[in-house]
Design a protein around this nucleic acid. Structure first.
Lengths: 110, 110
DNA sequence: AAAATACTGAAGTATTCACTTGACTATTTC
DNA sequence: GAAATAGTCAAGTGAATACTTCAGTATTTT
């Protein structure tokens, strides 16, 4: 999954779910099997597999099956895409917020 | 809306919708009325008002009604909360991704 | 005062979402 | 080779989501 192919809609949607964020936190400590990932979550294996697919689709995770075990890891592409989006928008927004701040300061003076 | 009260679930969810992101882009150029905000979007005023409420709820926008016109602006709280989340997680994830990189490099050597 | 403007509120609808169940397929382990 | 393990597939369910329409309610404008 290359950084540029990532759909920002799906990326934000993926990160909007607490279960998926919990999965990412777990993955940030090292690779795990699907079962190990599911264990603390209190939902079925199937549900976890579905979440995993969503995380893979937007470059937040990567999995690989060896024998009967699928190993899951975090991937940087999604995270990079998010940071890219923020960089692109911060400039735009900050400029506006600065102008807003200046405007309010002027109002206070008057 | 103070930065700390923002629900990260709702924040990501809010940003996951392209219409809402378009609204934010418009707002980053300056304050507008609800009608002006709705005009280029091709959806009803009602729908825009609903999106606005979501943006307000997670500190991405702020509105104020004077007479019959409601004026909308971007707010920094939501954006700050997003950056905070990223800062908190980048450290965690990067550490992992670094270890992953090192591991793969070792594998290449072997 | 009448007409136009700028929303607001309540209710409905189609789609998507998170999740489940239950049957199934590979792969190990014993 | 039988039993356990690890995951997969297809189908279904209830709740949430992004809309819509239609009937208001304030405010301006003329």
């Amino acid at each position: 999954m290359s950084d540029s192919k990532i759909n920002i809609d799906r990326l934000f949607h993926a990160l909007g779910d607490p279960t998926r964020r919990a999965m990412l936190d777990r993955l940030s400590q090292g690779p795990v099997s699907v079962s190990a990932l599911a264990a603390p979550l209190g939902i079925t294996l199937t549900a976890v597999a579905q979440h995993l697919q969503i995380l893979e689709e937007c470059g937040l995770a990567r999995t690989e099956k060896l024998g009967r075990v699928r190993t899951c890891r975090i991937e940087s592409a999604g995270f990079n895409a998010l940071e890219q989006w923020i960089r692109n928008h911060r400039t735009l927004w900050e400029r506006r917020l600065d102008r807003l701040g200046a405007f309010l300061a002027e109002e206070d003076e008057a």
